[in-house]
Write a protein that binds this DNA or RNA. Structure first.
Lengths: 215, 215
DNA sequence: AGACTAAACGGACTGCGGTCCGGATATTAT
DNA sequence: ATAATATCCGGACCGCAGTCCGTTTAGTCT
């Protein structure tokens, strides 16, 4: 289990050889399913050829041999397309920090889990950063995206578990800000900061935030 | 003094009744100056009428009675236009935290200056948030913008002054992230967080970051 | 004044994200 | 098989940011 889309990420992620089309509200039409496959395949090709930033909705439609309208009906927007491309990796990451083994998953002290969460997130961004950035960019409400909300809540929960009592919601917002793909990628690619240094700085940050203050 | 553009923000900010056109590299041509005035005036009108997000380069050109090319030559991009509109407030803010009275300016302990910096920045965003967001949005290198670099360096300097010895550059990046207009505006407008609560959370954050850790 | 040149002008043009709606098609009921 | 219908398809269309280049004009030199 648990690989099956923990949160509703987007329509059209997993091809789903699942035979169960039991959902009452009309199953997917066969041509729609075929086009979804074509589009996802073409999208991955294009990402490999042009990079995430080089993928345009028009090129994707042409490559997949469908109309532009079809692309937008399927993914809603460019950001939606990118999220769909990320959904497998995203679901896997979510599974790991929610149900996986410690120190990332439950069982370890909250501080250790926070440190591990940041480290994993940094590695995630190093691997899928282009897509992640494209998925957030130009999304008017990037903070409302289900995945972002889940991360925020997770951090907030860990803060509370660590007896951080001063506005955990806002502190989780600050910590989330530190882990944004845009910023991390800039640090690494433009400022030539090593991922290891990012992880170390994250560790320093959360230790100081969670640790008791001396009065 | 010190109101005169502490850092090179953009061409075409202050009308400059300054008679000193001593700069060797060719002074501004009269028609260019006239158009700059027209454009800035029209831009402020449009911002008032449509809000910052409702201002398009085409509308601005039409309103000012100039060609679209002229708008882009003057401001470079939409983000450049927004920065120009912000430049006065920005320069004033810079003057305050660099040379103004404590606790924001020099003279106060670094921690107090950090707290004051965040508080002032939050108030700034509450007032000019629309413009600030528009100035950063869609700017591929928002982190390279002169103003952003200056804030970063200022925070980094205060961290060092407060004897924060573990990677002040990256910690300044994290703290800057907390103060981004996009995030702050979302917290206030969507999540209904009060500015005062933002300031308090910022205070909590910097106190914990700068304060000594207990081992 | 008149010629010369560098700068500024303006609007047509491109490429993009996103929308719309008339037409095609898969599915279901008869 | 045929008809009915909900869904899906496609590409023309829109508004926008940003570019390009032929034309105009301000400042200067003689």
């Amino acid at each position: 289990m648990l690989g099956v889309s923990l949160i509703p990420i987007r329509p059209g992620s997993s091809p789903g050889s699942s035979s169960g089309s039991a959902s009452g509200a009309g199953a997917e039409r066969s041509d729609a399913a075929r086009n979804r496959e074509l589009l996802l395949c073409a999208a991955r090709q294009l990402v490999e050829e042009c990079g995430a930033d080089g993928v345009t909705m028009g090129k994707l439609a042409e490559r997949a041999g469908v109309g532009k309208g079809t692309v937008f009906r399927r993914f809603g927007s460019r950001a939606g397309l990118m999220m769909t491309l990320l959904s497998d990796a995203e679901a896997e990451f979510q599974g790991r920090f929610m149900f996986g083994p410690p120190p990332l998953g439950p069982g370890a002290p909250p501080l250790d889990r926070l440190i591990a969460f940041g480290a994993e997130r940094i590695r995630y961004v190093m691997e899928y950063g282009e897509l992640a950035r494209a998925a957030e960019a130009s999304l008017h409400n990037r903070f409302e995206a289900p995945a972002a909300v889940l991360w925020h809540r997770h951090i907030e929960h860990l803060l509370r578990s660590a007896s951080f009592n001063a506005d955990p919601w806002l502190m989780a917002m600050s910590l989330s800000a530190t882990l944004e793909p845009e910023r991390l990628l800039h640090a690494v690619r433009v400022q030539h900061v090593s991922p290891g240094r990012l992880e170390e700085s994250w560790r320093e940050l959360v230790i100081r935030v969670v640790g008791k203050v001396e009065d």
